[in-house]
Structures are given as C-alpha cells and as structure tokens.
Nucleic acid binder design. Structure first.
Length: 635
RNA sequence: GGGGCAUUAGUGUAACGGUAGCACGAGUGAUUCUGGUUCACUUAGUCAAGGUUCGAAUCCUUGAUGCCCUACCA
C-alpha cells in the first residue's frame, strides 16, 4: 500500500479514527499484506468461539464471544461456534444446549445458524461445529506423525511420566520408549484405538527434539514444559456424548485445538493469556504435519519422510487478558460449589455470575455487549469494576424500560377530603421518550406509599412526607400529612392526609394572592389500594461483599453477602401490570430481544418479570437499583 | 535455580519518538413531576533507576512488582 498517495487517506488514518486494539491492528496488517488471501480482502478473516461443554458460561465468556463475533462482523468474515468436546469425562449434552442458548441470547449468529430455534430440535444446532467431528482426521494425522518418527507410544505409568518430565528449573529424562521403532508405536496406537488396553496404560506422546523455531534447547529440557514430549492421546474407554462408543482414545487439548482451528480455516485464534506458552506447541504440531520438522534418525522404521501436500492451514494464535470483574467469582469449580452447597438456588439464580443468571436477573444482552466493548482488549491482567457493568445496564434500561409505580414496603394513606369516584391519570411510560405513550393509573381515597417515604422526626434535608409536610404524588395530586395513626405497639399504621384539588396531575398550584408559587421538594410513587396488584419482589444484591471474593481466607464462601437476596411479599403494583380492561391500557413495551419483560419501578430501580410468576401473582427480580444520592449521603 | 507475559489518575483504557486524552467512580453546582435522567465544573496518572535522542509513556539496560507455566483438564 502506498502511504504517500495524496488525498487517498484510508478511514483509519483519519485523526479522529476510533481506537483499534492490538488484535485489530494485527488483523489490519495481515489483511493489508495478504497473509491469508488477496491483499486487502477483509472477508478472509475467520474467528471462532471454542467453549468446552463442561459447565455453564459465566460473565467472563462474553468478552471472548463479543471479541470473536464482532471482529468477524467488522471484517465481513465469519465466526464459528465450536465445542471443544475432547474430554468425555467432563462434558455433557446439557452444557452444549445451555452454551448455544447463551450465545444466541447475546445476539450472535454463526455461519448456518437458524434463528429462533429451541434446544433439542435439529435447527438449534445447525452450523454448530464440534471437535469430535474431526476426531478421524486428527487420528490420521497422529498416525502420520508416528510413521515419521515424530510421535511414540509410551508405556510408562502416569507417575513415571510426570517424574521424568522434570520441573521448570530442571531438565527431565528421556522415556525408555522414546526411540522404539515407528511401526511398533503405530501398532500399539492402533490397538489403543481399538480398546485393547485399560485406561492410563499407554499414551501417545509427541517426540520433540531440539528445535530453534520453538526454542527447544534439547529433548525434555525446554524451560517451556509444554515442549517436554507432551501427551497427544490418552486411553479413555468411555462413551462420548456425541461419538458414543466409537473411540477408546481421545485427543488432548493441546494436540486437538490448533488442528480444529486449522481444519476450519480460522485465521486468528484468539484466546486468553494462559495459553501463551502453548503457542509454540501448536505451531510445532502444524509444522510437523506439514513436514517442516525432520524425522529423527534415532527412530528406526520411519516409513515416510516426504512433506505433506497440500499443507494444512496454519492459524495465528493471539492471546488477550480475560475479563475479571470485582465482587464476582468465575472459576467453574467455585461456581459449582455455590450451587451444590445451596448458597444459591441454581445455575440460573439471578445472583449467579453465569450468563443464564445475568439473563434471569434482567441484565440485557445489549448491556453485556456494551460492557465487554468498554473494558477493552489488552494483555494486562486487569480488575474490572462491576460498576461499569451496572452503568451499562442502567444506561440501556433508562432509555427503553417502561416506568411503573410499585410500592415495596406499603404504608396506608387515607385522603380524608376525597369525596369522589376513582380518577384515572394518564402517566408517561417513559419520560425519556414521549413516543412510548402513556398508561392509565387509578387514583382513589386510599393509597399505598413507601414506608420509607415517611418520617415522623425528619431531618431538614428529608424532602419526603413528614407531619404537616406536603409532597407530590407522581402524576396525581399534592397531599399534606395531617395525622399519624399508630397501633398499640407504637408502630405507624396509617397516615391521614388531605389532597389539594388545584394540583391535579401533579402540577404546581396557581400563585396565591401575593403572587407566590407554592413549591414542593418531594415526589412520591404510590398505588391505589383498591386497584393494587399483589406481587412478590426479590431484591437481588451482589453475591459477595469482597471485591475479590476468597482473597482474604482462600474461600469465597467466607465473603458471601448474607443479604444478597431479600424476598418481599405483599408488594403493591399499579394495575397496569394486570390484564387490559376496566379503563386500563397496557403500556407499550419495547421489543425486548429476549422476550423478558423489564420495567423501571419509579424511584426504586429496574426489575424484570421472573419465570416463577403465575397468572395471578407476578414475581419480579431487581436487576439493579437506581442511583440514590439521598441514600449515599446518609451513609 | 528456569522461562513467558505484563505495568499510564481510585478502576479500566488511549496516545505507536513530538500538547498525556477518554470512560467509569468520587466530589461540587444547575436543571428536573423519579433525591433518577441530563448539563457544567472539580479531582487525580506514565512502577523505579540509568541510558539513547533536539525530544521518551513509547526505544535500550538493570531492578521492582504482578500474572502464567511442572494434568493422561481445557
């Protein structure tokens, strides 16, 4: 590309060009140089999201999902969803379904993906790749490597192998089987494949000699332990959730992963930092298959030495730092412990940092994507403030969530001078967007207000209701508190107030005789007692109290927030939640991409309808509270 | 007694040898029929020491600190 060409500035050369992270920069250069195709052809870029189906996706995974899919979209290439199902001991079909579901929920599609398919039906899996689909090919390549003297069957016990590997500071010792004749290894490997041996009795190992490219100084002496004759296949006489009883040997991740990417033509294999030290091994395997590693003279019976044609595709691996949010654990083991020990109700408990938990909590896929894009892509082990996620959630929900009034902790208020029938007010669904229309809310002589919105001995700064004080009831009237009624125990059970007819709709009353306008500082939400819908509301708070759970004692359980879930019963909702009719208009709701109904309960926070709801009894989860500068000031 | 990677306001992230910006957080004020939203302002930073250079967050050296690597897990 001629950089001196006048006036032909590329878009990314503009002074205000958006920042491109280091992975985008690498891909930009690869595209420009024609590394994978015709120079400048952006559509050659192929990525993939390669989860192992051994658990549920957690908050960390979307970063990788967003990265891989958005890069493919940006370049006009494609991103595969591929399961790394090489370990039948840990993997299950149920996890496959859950992961596909989560990726779909996040809003991404892979080549061949069929929209709106449900788990279990064939369309749901359309286009999804599986490492197990490539087992045959990988096995054939392994046999080639054996024939070329680059892999051997080792009959040592796992303990012997471990010991002989040495450690990071000391070289290991060579296996006595390392130089056995190639045909012998091949015969053994075939017998392993047929199921002739018990688990753990033999493995296929790569035979890695000194090699300048991977910086291996000598056999079994690399400071990179991954290069000390790693295991390629182990015997597992066990059925696989997809291939059934076909196989008795299964490939190890290090052998399989790079080959899966190669088979799919992945150009950029994006993964997390801990795989950095594995990259030389992946590269060695591909080079070996491509005939770039010479056959060792020490192995007798080498039957083929010719380089393989055509050569297989060699993807480029690039590592980035994983997502690491505060107040959250992401280790699969620790998440499992939370579920199994009953600290939460399940993998989709709204407090769980799983994708299904976030979804049930009411977090939107849009917010998750914004959050992931916001944390950036670097090689720095960062700690990400959850406030950033919460901010993304509030930002999205504030724009689109319909407003409703809900009283969580009700206190009865009687309007003593109300002498009319029910009055219906049209209240905006969302002050942020007039196009969202209005809903009808009934006002009557007895209403509920939030217990916390009244104080008998209120400080000066308390703008809400107090004896003798006046507040606005949102969208209705101003009321003044004249009387506080208590029970025998001294608890406030009712407030007796008067309303001002001149404040209809909540507007300011006209100026008095001297031209002074009466003002009120507080506006309260309220619900008519006669029309209220009863609901259960689950106040979700962070699961852990510590920024980095478990750092203190080693066990995150010690940092659990005992108040992470408060279940409130007898909450009062305005009746527009119920069915239409009786002068009610159901409010217009946004087209939620996942069908989950979310609302802002005015002055309280964002809430979503939980699947536990029944027709007569809605259940809501609090996704996140509204910012509350009053509560903050009182801390 | 090895190797790899990293280090910029409280947190995260830009600046790619040439003015250290942005977002979140925190704080102050204004607006507001949500103590929400919005708006304005304030806050605070190149891990350390040397070197190269007219000029260094950026390049080099040394050190410090953090993370990762010694599964027949991924």
């Amino acid at each position: 590309m001629n950089r001196n060409e006048p006036n032909d500035a590329t878009p990314d050369a503009a002074p205000d060009a958006p920042h491109r992270h280091f992975i985008q920069q690498i891909i930009d250069m690869d595209v420009a140089s024609g590394k994978w195709g015709a120079p400048g052809d952006r559509s050659v870029v192929k990525t993939r999201f390669p989860p192992e189906p051994n658990g549920f996706l957690h908050v960390g995974h979307p970063k990788s999902i967003v990265l891989n899919f958005s890069i493919a979209a940006e370049f006009g290439g494609s991103c595969n969803l591929r399961f790394d199902d090489t370990n039948p001991e840990k993997e299950e079909q149920a996890y496959v379904d859950s992961i596909i579901d989560s990726v779909r929920w996040l809003g991404y599609q892979w080549p061949g993906c069929v929209e709106h398919a449900t788990p279990g039906e064939p369309a749901f899996y359309e286009g999804v790749r599986f490492a197990s689909d490539y087992f045959e090919q990988m096995h054939a390549w392994a046999c080639e490597l054996i024939e070329r003297g680059l892999a051997y069957v080792d009959e040592q016990t796992p303990e012997q192998i471990k010991l002989a590997r040495g450690d990071v500071k000391k070289p290991g010792t060579l296996s006595p089987f390392r130089d056995r004749p190639a045909p012998e290894s091949l015969a053994e490997f075939r017998k392993m494949t047929e199921g002739a041996f018990p688990d753990g009795s033999r493995v296929l190992r790569a035979r890695i000699d000194a090699d300048p490219v991977s910086k291996n100084p000598a056999p079994m002496a690399s400071p990179n332990m991954n290069l000390r004759d790693p295991v390629m296949y182990r015997i597992l006489n066990r059925a696989h959730h997809r291939t059934g009883a076909t196989w008795h040997v299964y490939p190890m991740y290090d052998w399989a992963h790079g080959l899966e990417d190669s088979i799919e033509g992945i150009t950029h294999s994006l993964c997390t930092l801990e795989f950095e030290a594995h990259r030389p091994l992946y590269d060695w395997f591909i080079r070996a298959i491509n005939g770039e590693i010479p056959s060792p003279g020490a192995v007798p019976g080498v039957s083929r030495t010719a380089p393989r044609e055509p050569r297989i595709h060699h993807p480029q691996q690039i590592e980035f730092a994983r997502l690491n949010p505060t107040y959250i654990v992401t280790s699969k083991r620790k998440l499992r412990q939370l579920v199994e020990d009953g600290h939460v109700t399940g993998w989709d408990d709204p407090r769980m940092p799983t994708v299904s938990g976030l979804r049930r909590r009411g977090v939107t896929p849009e917010a998750v994507r914004t959050f992931c894009a916001g944390v950036g892509v670097t090689k720095f082990n960062a700690v990400h403030d959850v406030a950033l996620l919460e901010n993304a959630v509030r930002e999205h929900l504030n724009k689109v969530a319909p407003r409703r009034m809900a009283v969580l902790d009700p206190l009865k208020v009687t309007i003593t001078n109300w002498d009319r029938e029910t009055e219906w007010f049209d209240i905006p669904n969302n002050p942020e967007n007039a196009a969202d229309g209005t809903r009808r809310v009934p006002f009557d002589s007895v209403i509920w207000i939030e217990r916390g919105d009244f104080m008998e001995d209120a400080p000066n700064k308390f703008f809400r209701l107090k004896p003798g004080g006046e507040v606005r009831l949102r969208g209705a009237y101003w009321i003044r508190c004249n009387e506080v009624i208590k029970n025998d125990a001294g608890e406030i059970i009712e407030l007796r107030c008067t309303y001002d007819p001149q404040t209809r709709g909540g507007d300011n009353p006209p100026p008095d005789a001297e031209g002074k306008v009466r003002k009120v500082k507080g506006t309260l939400h309220w619900v008519s007692v006669a029309h209220a819908v009863e609901a259960e509301v689950r106040l979700i708070d962070r699961l852990f109290l510590a920024e980095q759970p478990g750092k203190r004692t080693g066990d995150p359980v010690d940092d659990l927030n005992p108040e992470s879930l408060k279940i409130l019963n007898g909450c009062k909702l305005e009746p527009s939640f119920a069915a239409e009719g009786e002068g009610l208009t159901l409010l217009k709701e946004p087209g939620w991409s996942d069908g989950i109904r979310r609302f802002q309960f005015e002055r309280l926070g964002y809430f979503c309808l939980d699947p536990d709801s029944t027709p007569g009894r809605p259940v809501f989860n609090r996704t996140v509270n509204l910012k509350d500068s009053w509560a903050k000031a009182n801390k």
